[in-house]
Structure formats: C-alpha cells, structure tokens
Computed example of a mutant assay.
Amino acid sequence: MIKTHATVLMAAMLAMPTLAMSDTLELPADATVDVQVIDVLTLSEQAPERNDLIIHPVADGDASHALPEYCVLIGDASLEGERIRLTTQSLTCIETDGSESEIYSGEVSAAAYDSDGDFGLAACQDGNCRLTPEQTFQLRLASDLAIEQQDNPAAKINEQRRQAEGEGVANPIPAQAPDPDGD
C-alpha cells in the first residue's frame, strides 16, 4: 500500500512542469512559457528593430512550463511585414524558498509565437506595431535549457550571520541613550 502511494506521488511529481530543482534550472526543447515585455515596445518602418528588450515571465497562462517568478529575459525584436519577430539570448532567474534563494543566469534560445502558431506576433495596425506590458505572449524554446546554479554571495553572508547569531555574536542592539529631558 505504501509503495503504491509513493509510486503515485513520484508519477505526479514527474508530470509537473520542470522548474528550478536543486542545482539546475531545466526546461525541454519546445517548452513554452508565458511572458510580457517590461516597457512598451513600438516598431515601425522608421524604427524596425529594438535590441536588449527586457521580458519577464507571468503565471496562470496556458503555457506548457513556467519560469521562476523572479526572472528576466533579454531579447531582440524586429519588424517583419505585419509581425514582430522577437527572440531571446539570455536570462537571469532567482528562485526563492523562504529565506533561501538560488540564482540562475545563462543563455537561452527562444522565440515568440502567436496564438496562430506562426513565428512572430501579429501586433501591427496601420503600420504601427506595438506590445504593451499588459499583453501576454508565449516564448518557445529552440533547444533544451539547462543552467547551473550560480554562486549567491548574499546567501553566504546570511549563512555566516546565522552561524554568528547561533554563537551569541548577533548584531548588538544599541543601548537607548538617556533622555536629556529626564522623561
């Protein structure tokens, strides 16, 4: 009986979308994630490209996977006919669990696909192409993503502080200065 429950639990865990687990942030090729731009993106014939675009993941969409809540992706956008072609090059994510945090930073190859399944976003009207921070779209990974956890200097400092506090060397609380009015 216990073995059956453990098997069911393990199968359920394996069926969940992959997120940051232990030392590696992993997503499979063709995984989709829901994202939004941070600032308004406007492209036109006069300004058909924008580099170093900042994008962040959003939850509760219909993507196949999710990225950690605290994550930014850097990408480029270009105008291609009546579509915005958007691709990414890098990401940095921080996965938190209580007071602990893990940092992942590396390269990612993903592109925006519209709801019609075509590459690029149909976001053009009357020659102006625009994405706002309220518009959610999906990025599809071109290849497997596997980024190793980075060193987290803040975590090391916090660990040292916790050890010092455990030894009675906590940050001292300054004594209250005497009230000059005698109150």
Rank of each mutant, 00 (worst) to 15 (best):
S109P: 03
E107F: 07
L131E: 01
S64H: 04
S78L: 12
E134H: 11
P68W: 12
F137K: 03
G81M: 00
R83C: 02
Q89P: 01
A122S: 13
Q138L: 10
Y104E: 07
S64D: 01
V72D: 07
A59K: 08
N128Q: 15
C129P: 05
D116G: 08
Y70C: 09
E95R: 07
A123E: 05
E80F: 05
E107G: 02
I94W: 09
E102Y: 03
Q125V: 06
S115G: 12
G75Q: 03
Q138S: 13
Y113S: 00
S99H: 12
L86D: 00
E107V: 12
S101F: 08
G117I: 03
P68C: 14
Q138M: 13
I94Y: 08
L141V: 11
F137S: 05
D116H: 04
S115I: 15
I74Y: 06
E80W: 03
G106V: 06
A122C: 06
Y104D: 06
D114S: 15
D60H: 13
S64L: 04
D76T: 14
I55W: 06
S90L: 04
F119D: 02
F119K: 08
A111R: 02
L86G: 01
L79V: 15
I74N: 10
P133L: 09
I103V: 12
D116F: 06
S115T: 15
R130D: 00
A110Q: 04
L121P: 08
Q125G: 01
L141R: 07
S64N: 04
L53N: 09
S105T: 11
C93D: 11
A123S: 14
